[in-house]
Design a protein around this nucleic acid. Structure first.
Lengths: 168, 168
DNA sequence: CCGAATTATTTTAAGCATAAAGTATTTTGT
DNA sequence: ACAAAATACTTTATGCTTAAAATAATTCGG
């Protein structure tokens, strides 16, 4: 098996190694998906039962909570990693329900500013508190001294995936 | 309603420690969600572009691929961690498109058996191959020697969450 | 054996998600 | 100045997702 001088990592691997790596990658993905699905499903269920609210709505409020003077509407799809069209009806309903306001900008009439209302802020804080407690409950059995390590791994994974998406 | 005697670990912690743990838990959750969203979005896009197919449909085929003699329909929602009602239209379309068959059981007329067709199996293998390659591409920048460690952490996390969900 | 509970599956209503096309509005190039 | 490109957002079509109610078949208890 003559090895190239400047082998790309993948092509340098023999069949068995690459097979093993494929399996490991698939396993990582399936575990990741399983953990997320499990936690997300439970959080969604509790949001619904306790507050008659949804996670996407909560996510919007969470973004606005950090912006006392509001946000340009177009920032939301970027930060939440969802499509713009998706957000329209969600924002519509949050406005209807009095959690946020949507006001057209005077400088550029295409742009709208969304901003949390006082009631919205109050409701958000109440829900955020429960959200934190639910998460603590769900993750209670995971050893606390390994959180930082896991966070580091996930950060690196996220960076690796983002890099891979950048390339083409 | 007297509960357990032993102090819960949480109540034993002082405020600052608990705050720190809350933050770490939230960070884990947000990273987990970000990684999954990133990968899932890209996989979905490619399934759509390359095969005009969706991940839920692929997931059904993946389950059936491992069952040469088919599966009781009711097994699918359990294995895929989705609701039964969700599966009905997905299975409907897979049958329509000739990937799988759905045949009522003779012993219990409530039950149906779903089974992949020859063409379904062929299509699945073609897509599964691409799926593996896409995953390899997306995860290529993550150091291969740390996959096993990450898999272990995620397995433990999944177990911890499952245990927490069992309790109530 | 027969009514009541259970089980398997489907239907319905509401909401989330995307891609692609559409509507304004502003900016840019000449 | 003005047509064309770009930007911000909405609309539409399609599909996934759940919870809850409905349907149908089986099992169970008396």
């Amino acid at each position: 098996m003559a090895l190239a001088k400047e082998p790309t990592p993948v092509s340098a691997k023999n069949g068995a190694d690459q097979e093993a790596e494929y399996r490991a990658q698939t396993r990582v993905w399936l575990r990741l998906l399983a953990c997320t699905t499990l936690i997300e499903g439970e959080l969604r269920r509790r949001f619904r039962e306790e507050f008659d609210f949804t996670m996407p709505r909560f996510d919007v409020l969470a973004q606005l909570d950090r912006e006392p003077s509001g946000l340009v509407l177009g920032e939301l799809p970027k930060r939440l990693m969802v499509s713009a069209g998706n957000l329209t009806p969600i924002v519509d309903r949050l406005v209807e329900d009095g959690y946020i306001t949507r006001t057209p900008s005077n400088l550029d009439r295409r742009v709208q500013i969304v901003c949390m209302t006082v009631e919205g802020r109050k409701a958000f804080r109440r829900m955020a508190k429960s959200h934190g407690a639910w998460l603590a409950e769900l993750l209670a059995d995971f050893p606390a001294d390994r959180f930082d390590g896991l966070i580091g791994e996930l950060d690196e994974l996220k960076g690796a995936v983002k890099d891979a998406l950048q390339k083409p």
